[in-house]
Amino acid sequence: MQFEFRNNRDVWAGAMLIATGAVAIFMARNYAMGTTLRMGPGYFPTVLGGLLIVAGLYLAVMGLRRNEKIGGSWSLRALIILPLSLVLFGLLMEHAGFIPALLVLTFGSTIATTESRPLEAMLLSVGLTAFCVALFIYGLGLPYPLLASW
């Protein structure tokens, strides 16, 4: 039972909804509720949070009965590397310029797949970066420095 619970799809979906709903209600307690006729900023979030919790409980219970498994793999490599390269892109855009940011992003992306080949990855990231510079900076005239910040 314990093992089955661990990848029970709907139980996790329910748990996610309950957690989101709880956070929403918790945070909305700081906003004025108002009344039904004169709703304050806290009214809508609280009601929605409640709905999410109810739906989450229902899903979790149904999940235990239906016992559907999460399909496919979790592709952990891509799940970590892709968001990470996006974050690096953001940081580098602020501090190092367009070219380094794109090089890191495209290279990071290419190595996110298990099929990646080092040489190809390097060539591709250089090529894509060059293409993007031509397209966005020269073609569309976006005002970003290629290297170093203003």
């Binding site: 892709l82 996006l86 794109l102 992003l105 495209t106 990646s116 190809e120 894509l128 993007c132 976006l142």
Partner: peptide, 17 residues
């Protein structure tokens, strides 16, 4: 494996802009 890095690059630059 060659296509998706391009999608990532276009998305990132576009959203940044």
């Amino acid at each position: 494996r060659l296509l998706f890095p391009a999608i990532m690059a276009f998305s990132a630059v576009g959203i940044y802009s």
